[in-house]
Amino acid sequence: MDLTIIETKPIDGVAVLIVAGRLNVISAGELKDKLKALVADGVYQIVLELAGVTFIDSSGLSAIVLGLKSTRVHEGALKLVGLRPTTKKVFELTRLDRVFEFYENTDEAIGSF
């Protein structure tokens, strides 16, 4: 309930998930499920719009890493957009900033595929 995920229809095979709220052990499962469902649906190019994420811990991170791994299996990618500095910091602490691509806005992220 603390997390809101809005899924947009894939455009040119790129799906955009708009995530808002707290992304922790409680809500991470929900994001994981969404990502799994997209991959299952054959969407391997995913953009996560995280500007609305107010809090993220390692549990939230693991959901995003799961999504990245799942898409990469299918030669796809999961790209991140609009991270708050606090969110970005968590990626940096875990060196995951080296494996993700970060974009300022969604169109840019979509266009990068």
Binding site: S62, V65, K69, L93, T94, L96
Partner: peptide, 20 residues
């Protein structure tokens, strides 16, 4: 500490705490 070279789905918690 997790292997920072490959993304992992878990094991980051303690590391984050230590660093913060």
């Amino acid at each position: 500490d997790p292997n920072f070279d490959t993304p992992q789905e878990s094991g980051y918690g303690i590391s984050i705490m230590r660093q913060i």
